[in-house]
Structure formats: structure tokens, C-alpha cells
Design a protein around this nucleic acid. Structure first.
Lengths: 335, 335
DNA sequence: AATGATGATGGAATCGTTTCCATGAGCACT
DNA sequence: AGTGCTCATGGAAACGATTCCATCATCATT
């Protein structure tokens, strides 16, 4: 089977070669106090034996496994892929491994995943949460070190304040939405739709608030976290409400679906329908027509979240990163 | 600071409550032999205490941490994102956590990452390798359980056969390329370029082989793993060789760059230049013009690779998944 | 009835680290 | 010289599981 091989070199071997106790080796290697001479002898021995501390032993002793967990709804979505990339790049500089799980925007899967992490004694986690504040509250009570990214979750009961203390890195959806809506109304649009995905309630809330008097609740539709569902939602909206003249897609999968559905239904963009999509992706520029988007610093969101969870120093409650409206050619004046 | 809290319930607590020894509890929980009555008592106690075995203890004892590691060049690239998704979805059904690292197609970073994994005693890894057979050979000699995905690496020396035993899940690049090239030559194209990225030597080799007499080595160009570099490579090629009538992009970042560069240089697709891109992505259809692509089952590649590394049964040396040419509107007859 | 085989069981060792605590040396000050 | 203080140091005890091994009961066979 597997070769029995030469046993891996342990701290004990180093101690022996250096002629000191294991405790001393441990102290030297983790930056404790020791005399200069001892330190040198230990370091020498360690390099001579090519000693690498076993994370396993350390983890058991410290009752926590290193590394960070990262939970995103869908890694295939360009936005979350970039968010992951940001986390990964920050974690790399701390030499911390990152464990990724996808929740599919499903509360049950999310709970499962978190359960698994607890079992692994992972105590640091960055999450794009999907619903169920109860679950998250109990997780932080269990000692989990949570940072929310992209969206957050509030404490369910008005007495439990556990979640309100959880730091979060968000994008300024509201401002982005406001700019976008102002742009559209400036072009004369009044009937503005919103394509959302389950779990985007924060964005929907912001949309409702910013729209104010203009809001027509029949114009906001929800899709599940699949391509097909997004398409169905977009097509359904376009067919049902012929009076629609502009639509905002809550994410790039929704935007994709909107373009596709419009094409299928002979709705011309931007002549018949103006479209603004959340999140700038490389293909938005390549699309026909090039899409006007609300750009989000996805990678920064990930990076900052990782910093928060890894540095763990005094940390601000919540940081909000700016969005930017990038005007291309998918919006036109209402005709 | 952190609440000392009630100690987590250990196997010992369960043993005590059930009135048996810890060894028995362990056996029952991991499916060993035990009398029906004992089994029941143990299971009862376990549920009553809401006992969850600590992965830490197990890991240390077994000298290996569970889970799988996954190394990809760039998680932001749609292809690798889907590959990750495939791995994650398979791993989920085994309840195994997945640790992801991005190599950026850089051998040094790759080696770093693998070193880190060794330190964590991760012994199962799925990798899209980038260069340096030496490093991978020593990794498998160290007992690492490697499965290559998307591309593989051969043993450096002709005597060391370590790597040739490593299973791999690949896509049939050669066939895809052959079909694409036949399609292009059928349209009358003779000067066909290839846009590659560092680390795509397998694909370049296949291109060279399939092109045969038609090959003009000056028409294959390499980019580094960044968007800018891809753009520069494409633009450079288009300017340098005005006689070029068709080009194949080795990945979707390259394809993106090609479309952009062509647009910038007033090269019309497909009128002046036919384009085929490796890997079908949702936006290929939305692009103007819609792109003809060589589709690859990215998610399946990941899924199968995960199966291979997790089931670990008798396993085929290498599996090759089919590609498919999807004809859209980015190719036209040579004029 | 004596012997052997089988199977369930629990005690104890083990994995590799960190950290608590006791020890002893060195030094300053009275 | 004696007292007290600060250090460096090493032994040993965790951490929580798995698994080796010895023990004991039960039962079948001679």
C-alpha cells in the first residue's frame, strides 16, 4: 500500500539534535523568549532536519484549525468569483488556506456547510449569507468568527443583538441604485422593473425605497439561483408588462437573461427597453449593445472581508465600498 | 475575551453516559462491530448529548487531514470557475471540505501552495498543473494523492515514472482543435493564428500537430495570465500579420481580448477575420457577433476529477472528455 | 469436562504540538 | 551572606480521536 517511509521529523527530533527540550524548540519557533545561543542551535537543527511543524498537532492543541472558510451563493457567477479571488489573495499573504463552499442561495445547504465547518473546528468564516438569521445567530454564539460580505443579516429577535455586532463589507447598493434610477428617470422612464434573485432582499429594499412614488410592486420579480429561472423571470416580466420601458438587473446572470429574453421576444435594447445591470463584467462591453452597468469592486469586497477576519484587531462595524455607474449603450430616452 | 463556555462534548462523555468504554463508542460510530444493544445505547447517548466528533482529534490520529485541495490558475476565468463548481458539487456529496488555491499559472506560487498543503497534511489534491514536472514528481513521491485536471504534466527524466501514473481528467483538445481547423480550412482559410497563454503548451502542441503543413510558427503567440497581456498579444498579432484571416483563441480571456483588439483596430469579425474561441461561456452568444466556440464540459472535468481523488478505487489512468464545436457567427469564408 | 474458537469490550498508547508549572541559575540589593 | 527577582529551561499534561492488545464470556467441538 502506502510506503511506511521514514517517519516525518517532529519537534522531538529537533529538540534532540539541538540538545534542548521540546518546549524550548516550540518557544523558539513561535517567537517566544530564549537565549541567543539556544535560538541559534534550535534554528540550525531545524533547518538541518528540514523540519516543518505539523498543522495537525498544533490544531488539536489549540482547539481550532487554521484557515478561513468562505461561503458564496455561486462561484460560477463572475461577481462571486472575483470576490473569492479577493479573499484568496489576501489570505495568501497570511499563508492561510481557504476552504470554499457554495450555498446556491439555499438556507438549508448553508446550514449544512456551517455545520461541517464547526465539525472541522474552523472558527473564521466569511459569508455571503442567505436568509435565516437564527442560524447565523447561533453560529456566532457558538464562537464562530463571522464576517459578512456583499450583504448582511440582522438579528431575528429584537433582543438578540448577536448579529448586529458582526462586521460586514458591503457595496453601496443604495447609492448605485439611486444613480441608476436618476439616470433612467432623467431619460424619461417611469415604469422601471427590477429583476432580482432570491437572497437579494437588501437590494430590492433599496430599489423600493429609492423608487418612492414611482414604485410599482408588480414590476419587481424574483428568480431562483439558476440560469433557467433567471430567463423565465425576465421573459415573464417582459411579456406580462408591455408598458415596461426600463429594467434593472440585480446581477449579471439576471442581466444575461434579460438580454437573451429581450432578443427572443424581439424587444430591442435600448430602443424598446433600457437595461442597466448590476456588476460590471468584461463581456458587458462586448455585448450587443454594450451594457450600462453599476460596477462593484467585487475583489475589494473579498479582500477587505478577509482582512477583517484575519487581522481581527479593532475593527469597524461595517465598511461600505462605492459603486459606479458606467454608461455604455443599453439605455435610451423613452419614446 | 472569548467565553470559556461549556467544554465541547467529547467521545469520553458519550462513553460515560452510555456506560461503555471510549473504544466501543468509536467503533460504533465508525461502523465497527458491536452488539445490537450496545450500539443502541451508544447511539442514544450520542444523540442525547448532541455529540459531534472532532475532526481535529481524528486528523491527528490518522496523520492526515480530511478534505481535498484544488489548485487552479485563475478562479476568475469562467472555465476554471465551472471546474471548481464541479469539484465542489462532487465533494459535497462526500461531505468533504475543499480548499482552493490559485496559482496564476506561476510555478513558484504553485510550489508554495503545495508546500502549504503538505504542512496541513492534506494528502489529496486536484490540480491544473503549471510547469515543473520536478516539483510534482517529488510531491507524489511524498505520498500526495494527485489528480490532474484540464492538463497534465509528464515525468521530467525518462527514468522517473512517478508522474505518468497520476490519473488525469482532460478534455479532448486535439479533436476539438481538429474540428475547428477543418471548419476553418473548409471556409478557405490558410493563415490561421493561435492565441495561447503560458501553460497551454499542450494545446499549442495539438495545434501545431493538427495544422501540419499549414503551420506558420510566427502565428502562434503567447500571453501571460493577465487581461492586459492577452490584449497586447492579440493586438500585436493582428497588427504584425495583416495576412491573417482566422484565429483561434485558446481560452475565453484570450477570446475576449481578441474581440476587443479587433474592434479597436477596425478589424471586422467575421468579415476580415474569423474567430473561434476555446470554451463556451454564456456571453459568447450575447457577443457581437455571437462567437463560434469549442465547448468544453468544464464542470464535468471537475466532477470526475473529484470522483477520482475521493473514491480512490481502481481508477483509470486518464479520462478524456469530448469537446464540441458550436457554430455561431464569428466565422466566414475567406474573401 | 476440557479445549479452542469467536466476538464483544475496555484500557492504554499514540499522533505532534503548545503551554503550564517547577526548577535552577544568575544577578542586584540590602 | 542572605533574600528576592527575573529569566531561560525542560518535564509533563493537555487536546480528542483511533486502534492495538489483552481480557473475558459464550459456545461448539472433541
Amino acid at each position: 500500500m502506502s510506503t511506511p517511509g521514514p517517519r516525518r521529523t517532529t519537534i522531538k527530533d529537533v529538540a534532540e539534535l539541538a540538545g534542548v527540550g521540546v518546549a524550548t524548540v516550540s518557544r523558539v519557533l513561535s517567537g517566544g523568549s530564549a537565549s541567543a545561543e539556544t535560538r541559534e542551535r534550535v534554528l540550525d537543527a531545524a533547518t538541518k532536519l528540514d523540519y516543518r511543524p505539523s498543522a495537525l498537532g498544533r490544531n488539536l492543541r489549540q482547539q481550532r484549525s487554521g484557515g478561513v472558510a468562505l461561503l458564496v451563493p455561486d462561484i460560477t457567477d463572475g461577481f462571486y468569483a472575483r470576490l473569492c479571488d479577493g479573499v484568496l489573495s489576501c489570505a495568501r499573504s497570511y499563508r492561510e488556506p481557504v476552504t470554499i463552499g457554495v450555498t446556491g442561495d439555499d438556507a438549508e445547504q448553508e446550514a449544512d456547510l456551517v455545520g461541517g465547518l464547526l465539525e472541522q473546528s474552523m472558527d473564521r468564516i466569511i459569508a455571503v449569507p442567505t436568509g435565516d438569521g437564527e442560524m447565523w445567530a447561533s453560529a456566532v454564539r457558538a464562537g464562530l468568527n463571522v464576517v459578512f460580505a456583499d450583504r448582511r443579516v440582522w438579528s431575528p429577535g429584537q433582543h438578540a443583538r448577536a448579529l448586529d455586532e458582526v462586521p460586514a463589507v458591503l457595496t453601496d447598493d443604495r447609492a448605485g441604485l439611486r444613480t441608476a434610477i436618476e439616470y433612467l428617470t432623467g431619460l424619461g422612464h417611469r415604469k422601471i422593473g427590477f429583476l432580482a434573485r432570491q437572497g437579494m432582499s437588501h437590494r430590492v429594499a433599496a430599489f423600493r425605497e429609492v423608487m418612492g412614488d414611482l414604485l410599482d410592486d408588480d414590476l419587481v420579480v424574483f428568480a431562483r439561483a439558476s440560469r433557467d429561472s433567471a430567463y423565465a423571470a425576465a421573459a415573464g416580466l417582459f411579456q406580462r408588462r408591455a408598458d415596461l420601458t426600463a429594467v434593472i438587473a440585480g446581477g449579471n446572470m439576471l442581466g444575461e437573461a434579460a438580454v437573451l429574453a429581450a432578443r427572443e421576444l424581439y424587444v430591442r435594447i435600448p430602443r424598446d427597453l433600457s437595461l442597466i445591470m448590476f456588476d460590471d463584467v468584461p463581456w458587458a462591453e462586448l455585448c450587443s449593445p454594450p451594457l450600462t452597468v453599476i460596477a462593484q469592486p467585487a475583489s475589494d469586497v473579498g479582500y477587505r472581508a478577509a482582512e477583517l477576519v484575519l487581522r481581527h484587531g479593532r475593527r469597524p462595524r461595517t465598511v461600505s465600498l462605492p459603486t459606479e455607474l458606467i454608461v455604455r449603450s443599453s439605455c435610451a430616452p423613452r419614446r
